[in-house]
Design a protein around this nucleic acid. Structure first.
Length: 452
RNA sequence: GUCCCCAUCGUCUAGUGGCCUAGGACACUGGGUUUUCAUCUCAGCAACAGGGGUUCGACUCCCCUUGGGGAUGCCA
């Protein structure tokens, strides 16, 4: 059975590129009835935090990328690694080396000591990396790669503070978990030769590797904080749908002809590693936004209502009438691309007193507008709000009575109803707001114009 | 510096030697729909990094150059 893993290091937020690696690893296993495991590679004890760890786990869970076994934490397995290092030492495959902190390693925090029987102050243990032969790798996405032994070096497997390092722990745990296929970012490609040699040193089966190209920022550099909010939780928090995120991430680096939309079920049927691209991609916010809007538009209104409630709460809006909310959403759901923005674009439906700003209204003539509003109020007070037709006709009548074109009437009315220039059509607006609210706003705006 | 990886429209990609005057999508531009905006819709713009081979024929195969990325840590 195929077994893959995702092994994040909780030294930062899980960014969107990491999520894609997890997704591909998960899809590779799951599309072939295999298993997917999550392992927390927290051997860098000074930089790993519980906060990062929890946020990574929670994000993966939100995305549906769940581990098929209990999470493995490397920080809880130091005794296992010590045994393994001792094995290498006893078989002349590792050795002690006296080291000093240098320019390159000065940032490494060695304050936390992990006392163990191999630990020797001022000494690290290095793996005796065989340098006689090139290492050949048959990578599932890159094909055959030959590593020149010229650059092989003896990597540290135990730090001077007694903490084992990634190259060792990763190999030990991949063996322990029975990982058959390692799907990871190609920033690990250079480490692979070392790790293959380590697997061999332990006489263990070398897993199959699949190195994924990375996602870069617009500057072509690897994605990081300086490219803006790229951590997965910020996308989730802003109201990007899981469907959209997955669809976006899978489409960058993998394709199935010209198909643009994929559900998770589709992916489970269609995903194959041979359609994964070798070249890196640049993160495209526009395309993600477009996809997110697509999924929001196509979701049931009641689902969106559920999902948008927390965003409205954050804006201090209490929704008492569920039906009213759904009506509003039907007018405003495709006006923005994430739930947070949609929610903040909807506030005027709930406010009792709109905050009219003259700056926004500067292009309209206050005297004319006042007359228009006055007429609209008169007409609209006498009509039935049961259908939109009535409201629409009412506005038309005002136009003809005053010999004005719609463009001289519409914007002022729309502004009165919403305090903004861009909004749904007036009849929809009035119909959804209801007669009382609509009239109150028209009167409020009339008063506002009188003061101005 | 050394090693490794990568290279099609601005971006994500299709393309596995003839189907390519290179297809789709996002973005952008213009038109239509919409009483504004958004949505929707139609159209347009726009690419095989360069140079050598191989071949009857190269986007596709090989080599070189160039460009980009990664590794070269007591990070992962």
């Amino acid at each position: 059975m195929i077994k893959t893993r995702f092994a994040p290091s909780p030294t930062g937020w899980l960014h969107i590129g990491g999520v894609r690696t997890a997704l591909f690893s998960w899809l590779f296993a799951k599309s072939q009835s295999g298993q997917f495991y999550i392992r927390i590679d927290d051997t860098d004890t000074s930089r790993s935090t519980k906060e990062y760890c929890d946020s990574i786990i929670s994000a993966l869970h939100s995305l549906g990328l769940n581990s098929d076994r209990e999470l493995m934490y490397q920080s809880k397995r130091f005794d296992v690694y010590i045994d393994k290092i001792e094995y290498l030492l006893n078989n002349n495959l590792a050795y002690y080396d006296q080291v000093e902190v240098n320019e390159k390693t000065k940032d490494t925090n060695l304050d936390i000591q992990y006392e163990n029987r191999l630990n020797k102050l001022g000494h690290v243990i290095r793996f005796k990396n065989p340098k006689e032969n090139p290492v050949k790798l048959k990578d599932l996405v890159h094909g055959e790669i030959t590593f020149n032994p010229k650059t092989f070096h003896d990597v540290v497997i135990l730090r001077s503070n007694g903490v084992p390092t990634y190259n060792l722990t990763s190999v030990v745990d991949d063996t322990e978990l029975g990982i058959t296929h390692i799907v990871r970012g190609d920033d690990h490609l250079s480490n692979t030769a070392i790790q293959i040699n380590l697997f061999k040193a332990f006489n263990e089966t070398v897993p199959v590797f699949a190195h994924l190209a990375m996602i870069h920022g617009v500057d072509g550099k690897r994605l990081s904080k300086r490219h803006g909010a790229v951590d997965i939780n910020s996308f989730l928090d802003e109201g990007y749908l899981v469907e959209a995120l997955i669809n976006y991430l899978v489409k960058t680096g993998w394709s199935h002809g010209d198909q643009e939309f994929f559900s998770t079920d589709d992916l489970l049927k269609l995903f194959t590693i041979d359609k994964v691209t070798k070249s890196s991609a640049i993160f495209d916010y526009d395309k993600l936004n477009w996809l997110n809007q697509h999924y929001i538009k196509n979701k049931d209104l009641s689902d969106i209502a559920d999902m948008i409630l927390p965003y409205l709460t954050d804006l201090n809006i209490k929704v008492s009438d569920r039906k009213y909310l759904e009506n509003i959403l039907s007018l405003g759901i495709d006006r923005d691309y994430n739930l947070k923005n949609i929610a903040s674009g909807l506030t005027y439906y709930f406010e009792n007193d709109l905050n009219y700003k003259s700056d926004d209204f500067v292009k309209f003539d206050p005297i004319k507008s006042k007359a228009v509003i006055e007429n609209v109020i008169k007409k609209i007070s006498n009509i039935d709000f049961d259908n939109k037709e009535n409201i629409s006709n009412c506005i038309k009548e005002v136009c003809s009575d005053m010999s004005l074109k719609f463009k001289d009437v519409g914007p002022a009315v729309r502004f009165a109803l919403t305090a903004r220039l861009k909004a749904p059509s007036i009849d929809e607006l009035c119909f959804t707001l209801g007669k009382d609210k609509a009239l109150k706003r028209l009167n409020d705006f009339y008063a506002f114009l009188s003061l101005a």
